[in-house]
Design a protein around this nucleic acid. Structure first.
Lengths: 355, 355
DNA sequence: CTGTTAGCGCTTTCAA
DNA sequence: TTGAAAGCGCTAACAG
């Protein structure tokens, strides 16, 4: 049997309360006493039973997630993952609530943040919009003592405690590296379809993509960015026009949302041998991948992100350090051949520890 | 506050013990009483606090992992992950012990399985060798009531309860698909370096690779398999000979271990523009990826596999169903641009829930 | 500064 | 067939 607080209390010749104080770095223990207890902990190899501690504490962590509304499939998937986490949240003593706000609307976001902070939750996770008012709102929340993490889209200008999301420059580089290998010495320019260059993630992905493409031996023209506003209709139109203007188009990198339009345009008439790389595995990109219309999809696992956000916020609430390297979100690459199984909603009801 | 056993006891007008009996489907409760309790559970929306239940039960799960000895980096990484899981095992009430056995030695493996089963642990996870004696040993253990899962390498011929590992045919297909895209219309044959065609995983990977390559429009010669016995020296030699015999070699797929030798041969003198895809991220493949000697690495996350094995074995021990789709292990693809950070050993000391 | 005591939500003897 | 009471490992009043 592993040692308990009773064992170290006995071994150190003190009471349970004193052991507890030492364990939790609470004040009111003489140096000598503390040393005795620590020695006992050390020699007995004591490790605290976190489950029992939590049970005794009865502490809960009210957490607020703020996500953009709208039909962006990635965001809807993110929300679904938050709900999943919410359903098994009793297990990790988190109480999760979700606030949806109009997309790309700084003022609405500011209001949501202020509202959330007013309830003094244990933490706030927010999909940030890159605006000074938003940064200010985040700073206000933190001043009130509420930890804030940015989710998916960062806002470094704010004093947010942590960013939960992928390294978008690296994602862009990965796409560029893949595209370079896919194209080899095949001639022709490459197009980039983005949502908006006003969004930080998209700018960063483009930057990484361009850099990685430049590293390849073949010289290749990268056309002016097509800004599809994450809107399927507009994206389709822009891509179709691009096909017209560049019949020799060799590749296209879609670094934002609106991939439904992209796929429509491609299946209508794409230049022969066109290589396509897109972001985020959704029902649309998944089926396009299977059909061979898209070659590869870069992905960030929303479930991982949500669980990471919860861990980080709880850690911040407790004033405990976060192991940054451990909370780094992976950039997944999917081909049609390594697609994960489609998760039915009710399967996710089960406890899912990781993976 | 969510309802507790006390609440349902009060609401149903019975004692805690009776509630517990109903909750755990234990006998000795009248039908009417049971119905009353179940009604209360339903209307109050009760969900059991698993942590508290485990605390009260004090149940532990002794689990034995059997892995091959030797300097195969993947296996050593696997063992490291088992140790990591072992260190935080108190949290999930698992008591993990590791048995190492000579690699590719069916008899030694049989003995290890029998020894492990003799202690009547809650479960056994074994990296299987494809031999009838091993299948028989696994069946013996299961007859004794000890659940067994195969890990990384399957043995479907046995009655193992579950296989924890990647779909190796799909992995081969992924490699073939990538290779096909990398090579495009560039001429030249492709070589395959394997450990041994006697191992099931390797056979399956080859099968998938060949199939995927055949699907690509370009006709391409796939050379006879080089069997490197997962031995760096032999692998180096075989690859070097292959370079000699085929100066126009376009690509090489290394589907087993021994990649240190592969990398040495490549860095010595590889045909210009050679595309290389290997398996398993190790220090060797990682640095070769960074150096541009390898284009892509397919990977199975040993940490995920270990945690999945633990979950599955505990579920089997409790006679609870496993959600197969949820326990499916992903095939990861790494380029130099999306490499995960190198985990320092001591970082893994922290609790890592998933991801 | 230190100890006593009750209790978190659940399980488990032992009696009734 | 049912219930009372003790206890899992830890924390948190409240006393001393």
């Amino acid at each position: 049997m592993r040692p308990t607080v009773h064992d170290i209390a006995a071994s150190a010749g003190v009471s349970l309360a004193t052991v507890d104080r030492v364990l939790n770095h609470r004040p009111g223990v003489r140096g000598v006493t503390r040393a005795k207890v620590e020695a006992a902990i050390e020699t007995l190899g004591y490790v605290r039973d976190v489950a029992a501690a939590n049970l005794a504490k009865g502490r809960v962590y009210p957490l607020v997630f703020i996500v953009p509304a709208g039909d962006n499939p990635f965001m809807r998937g993110l929300e679904a993952e938050i709900l999943v986490a919410g359903r098994r949240s009793p297990a990790d003593r988190a109480q999760i609530s979700i606030l949806t706000v109009p997309a790309f609307d700084p003022l609405a976001l500011v209001e949501a943040i202020d509202t959330a902070a007013a309830d003094q939750p244990a933490g706030i996770a927010v999909v940030a919009v890159d605006a000074p008012e938003v940064a200010a709102a985040i700073d206000r929340a933190r001043t009130t003592g509420v930890p804030v993490v940015t989710l998916v889209s960062d806002l470094a200008a704010s004093g947010r405690d942590h960013f939960v999301g992928i390294d978008n420059v690296a994602a862009g580089r990965t796409a560029g590296s893949l595209m370079g290998r896919f194209l080899g010495s095949r001639p022709g320019p490459v197009a980039v379809l983005a949502g908006s260059m006003l969004v930080r993630d998209h700018r960063e992905r483009l930057e990484g993509f361009t850099a990685a493409m430049a590293e390849h031996s073949e010289v290749r023209v990268i056309l002016d960015v097509l800004e599809g506003q994450d809107d399927p209709m507009l994206a389709e139109e822009l891509v179709a026009m691009c096909f017209n203007a560049h019949p020799d188009l060799a590749g296209i990198y879609s670094l934002g949302a609106g991939n439904r339009g992209l796929v429509t345009a491609i299946s209508a008439r794409a230049p022969k041998g066109l290589r396509v790389i897109a972001h985020d595995l959704t029902s649309h990109t998944r089926s396009a991948l299977k059909a061979g219309l898209i070659d590869a999809v870069l992905h960030q696992d929303a479930g991982h992100e949500v669980r990471s956000a919860i861990r980080v916020l709880k850690a911040k609430a407790d004033g405990v350090a976060v192991i940054e390297a451990q909370e780094r979100i992976r950039i997944d690459i999917f081909l049609k051949d390594n697609l994960p199984p489609e998760q039915r909603g009710d399967l996710r009801d089960q406890v899912e520890q990781d993976d």
